[in-house]
Amino acid sequence: MTARDRVAVIIEDDADIRRLLEEVLEQGGFETHSAGNGLDGVEKVRRYRPTLTTLDVSMPGIDGFEAAKRIRAFSDTYLIMLTARTEEIDTLMGLESGADDYIAKPFRPRELRARIDAMMRRPRLAASGGDGDQSASPSTDTVPPDVPAGEKASAQPGAPAEPATATASPPSAAVVVPATAAGDEDWIEHRGLRVEPDMRLVVVDGEEVELTRSEFDLLSLIISSRRRVRSKADLALALRGESYVTSYYVSDADKRAVEVHLANLRRKLGENASQPRWIETVRGVGYRLTADDGA
């Protein structure tokens, strides 16, 4: 990542916390721009096109949830919500509004830096409205993009025994077909669902589907794993850019975040969770790809 990429916008109404965040991020090599309310923060994201944005939830004017939705309508910035509101519903609302991570106050600067580093190891999609174009309409569940839109690297979440940032290769059981929209690249196909990991494209029955970064990462890991069950903890670590080799702590909030992303993914794919076409739930364990027969 170049110095040009290390731009951050801080949206925080508490002046002391704002200064702390500026110090922490500037120590990490970021150029920072701060705002004391949601409306000004959204405009600064539009103006500076940051790689990273930190966002408070309780602010004057529009709150952090609404600010996140507006930001996601035009920006692919990595978005971290920082808030004293730690109820489960607040965490879920933050993730559904488009946040990449949700950290409770008071936070430890070292933990914040670690979370940022983990996020930025994950690939990013090319933003479809980075020029401020509002033509991208928010979805009813999660406002795109979380980041839809083209990421810098082709790394995919790895299995628990491997670094999560390693590129995921489809196992031999996967059905790989020639691509029709990505040059010479190969696609992984299952019952009308086609995924191109390197180009980060998803097609269902011939129609392209726009997913958030987290949704795509989960789908790519599950479809590449085929019938192997992926636990919620495994998937949560993968979303954080980690694995059981480098980390082992997964909170209940992390697991609930996986459930939210999977629910959003299923809605976008048009899948019924009770009669899944692609992703089946293994109760008490996690998720796996459905069997090849009975399309």
Rank of each mutant, 00 (worst) to 15 (best):
G28E: 14
G29E: 10
F30D: 02
E31F: 06
E31W: 07
A35S: 15
G36W: 01
G36S: 14
N37A: 09
N37E: 15
N37C: 14
L39N: 13
L39Q: 14
V42L: 07
R46E: 10
R47F: 11
Y48N: 13
P50E: 09
T51V: 09
D56N: 13
S58C: 06
G64I: 07
F65D: 00
E66S: 07
E66K: 11
A68T: 12
R70G: 01
I71H: 09
F74G: 04
F74N: 05
F74H: 11
D76W: 05
T77G: 03
M81N: 07
M81T: 11
T83W: 01
A84N: 10
E87I: 00
T91E: 05
L92H: 02
A99M: 01
A99V: 02
Y102Q: 01
A104S: 15
P106G: 04
F107C: 04
F107V: 04
R108L: 07
P109Y: 01
R110M: 03
E111L: 14
E111H: 09
R113L: 15
R113P: 00
R113C: 10
R113E: 11
M119F: 11
M119K: 09
M119N: 14
R121K: 15
P123G: 12
R124W: 05
L125P: 14
A126P: 03
A126R: 12
A126Y: 08
G129I: 06
D131F: 12
D133A: 13
D133E: 12
